[in-house]
């Protein structure tokens, strides 16, 4: 796991406040109800921070953010370098 993915997992655990839940890169978050879709705004900002990319919100669907692995794949696919 990359350090960035690890940081994202720490951030998500902080967000959902359920210490008993284990989260890895492939844990479904939105579809499983662990993360409500309102939190996506926050996760998108965090993802931009961790990847140093600008990720246009218009190109991101909730399903693209369902797992940590998908988030980073989405950032790779639609993210743009910050000028």
């Amino acid at each position: 796991m990359t350090p960035e993915a690890h940081q994202m997992i720490v951030h998500i655990k902080d967000l959902i406040r359920k210490p008993a839940v284990t989260i890895d890169e492939n844990t479904p978050l939105v579809s499983s109800g662990l993360i409500d879709s309102m939190s996506l705004v926050d996760l998108l900002l965090k993802l931009e921070d961790l990847t140093h990319k600008r990720i246009p919100a218009g190109k991101v669907q909730p399903k693209d953010m369902d797992t940590v692995a998908k988030m980073f794949a989405t950032a790779e696919r639609v993210g743009k370098p910050r000028k």
């Binding site: 996506l40 705004v41 998108l44 246009p56 919100a57 218009g58 991101v60």
Partner: peptide, 12 residues
């Protein structure tokens, strides 16, 4: 811009 895209990213 679509309202939701702006809310997700006001900076845009």
């Amino acid at each position: 811009q679509l309202p939701l895209n702006w809310v997700m990213q006001p900076e845009s």
